Amino acid sequence: MTRTDAPLNHPPQTMVMLDDWTWQSTWFYSPNCKGSYSVPNCVMPGQNFFDYKKSSTFHQTSDAVQSFNGTDYAPGLPFTFNFGTDKMCLPDRNSRDDICKSKIEVEISDLPYEFPVVEDIGGIFGYSPVLNGFNATFLPAPYQFMQAGLISNIVGWHMCTALKNKKSCSNQDYLTILGGTDTSVYHPQSMQEHPIVVTPCINAGNLNLSPSRDNYWSASWTGLWMGNTAISLSAPSTGQPPVPDASCNTINPVAIFDEGGFGKGAPIPLAAFPSIVTATGAIQINESAAILNQGKQSLYSVSCGKISTFPTLTYELSGKQNITVTPDMYIDTTTMPGTCLLDARAWDRTTAGAQTFFGLTVIERTYLKFDYERLTVGVAPLNHNLF
């Protein structure tokens, strides 16, 4: 069905996929929409898609149709899928031969509308962890390859946009390794393992996923410092339970690792957001913060000549490891040329619930190791000589 280095023919079909650590499986755009199969009506010209009817190895399964609400891919519209199995091939960076497995379960889009735009991807290559009791509809492709003994239970990731060069990412912005990590860019002894947090409180706020789930690569967020000043992670006292389950107000917040839109911006508790505005001398401007991240706060500019004087942000995970975010990491200098923007994201526990997102702004100098077997996230700083 899919090979990353093969020409587009039938079979195989080459798919351009987007990595998504929070997506549960692998889904493909297909010519299904409004109850029928039609390439002219359901696929915009130029859209990469999977034409499952031209795959001799595709078989639809009897798994129930699922619908997801609140996705980035179709905001405000249901994202509906049915399921099937097909042969999938992945490139092996250590060999000229692909790693292939038959009967990988995947999601096939079956939308109740014509998709209105051309996306630069043909689907999502999901990576979310697999919990006990999950059926095949929750199994990401790497997990299924691991089950077959074709790759190990590890996925490694780092980004190169802040490095001196992109050689360690094969000259791309990021590098994902299925079945291992790249120990040349971090010291293995500095890797700390964090058990993922599984709790209904992840979905207690406005995450708005349907069906609700709590299988994310995550860690307990136990501390935050702005410079030398400790910042409270507790919800402010409002006289009302912050979420439907008041017990979610008492647990440590949950840091969900997300390289997508939800993870942009350095998370700051809403009550502390004025502090970072003051510390950076930020000035509110008449633009939406949505151009940077998913935060609900206003957008602020700062003096480009004073960035080095701004405070460092320190995030503590599981009470045992810190991630340091320097001012140049949370100040954006590229979105609006000539203007430096405060790339911080207000986290309001009273509406968002216990979860927040740790994404590119926080982890751009960090190596991540996702372990499907132990259900842990490994965190290590990238080697200093890379910067």
Rank of each mutant, 00 (worst) to 15 (best):
G260N: 03
L8H: 06
G133K: 10
F145P: 03
S184W: 01
G359V: 07
T14L: 01
P236I: 12
P116F: 11
V377G: 07
Q66Y: 05
L150I: 05
D19C: 11
D86P: 01
E107N: 12
T312G: 03
L292H: 09
T351I: 06
C42M: 08
P129G: 03
P116V: 08
Y37Q: 04
Y330V: 08
S220V: 01
F257M: 13
G319P: 05
A204S: 15
K164E: 08
K264L: 04
S212Y: 02
T324N: 12
L317P: 00
S190Q: 09
G319R: 08
Q297K: 02
K369W: 01
F79L: 14
P244Y: 03
L209Q: 13
T137E: 08
F83R: 00
S184A: 13
D258E: 09
E364C: 03
W23E: 14
A346E: 15
P311F: 00
Q189C: 00
T356Y: 09
P129D: 03
D20L: 06
T312P: 01
L163I: 01
P129F: 00
I283P: 00
L18W: 01
S301E: 15
A279H: 00
S212M: 13
L178I: 08
S303L: 07
M15Y: 07
S232Q: 01
N82G: 12
T183E: 14
T376N: 09
Q24V: 13
I251P: 06
D343W: 05
P244T: 02
Q321E: 13
S184T: 15
I256T: 06
F83P: 00
L360R: 12
F134L: 04
K101W: 00
V198I: 13
T2L: 07
N385C: 00
N32Q: 13
A344Q: 03
V65H: 11
I276A: 06
E193N: 12
K369T: 15
S237C: 07
G76Q: 08
G295Q: 09
S38Q: 07
C201K: 04
D97A: 11
P112V: 14
N41R: 07
P327M: 09
A230Y: 01
A235R: 11
P195S: 04
P45Y: 06
S170A: 13
K320R: 15
C42E: 06
K87F: 03
E119R: 13
V379F: 05
S38I: 06
P12Y: 10
G338I: 08
N69G: 13
I268Y: 05
L313Y: 01
R93Q: 12
R349D: 04
Q284S: 10
G319Q: 10
I154Q: 12
K320Q: 15
N206K: 10
M191H: 00
D5C: 02
A162T: 14
N228E: 15
S25T: 15
P253A: 02
T161W: 05
D110C: 01
S237A: 13
H384T: 14
N48P: 02
V377N: 10
V362I: 10
G156N: 10
I291S: 06
N82D: 12
N9Q: 14
S210T: 15
F310G: 01
T339P: 03
F138M: 15
G227Y: 00
I363G: 04
A289Y: 01
M88Q: 15
V106P: 02
P195E: 04
Q294R: 13
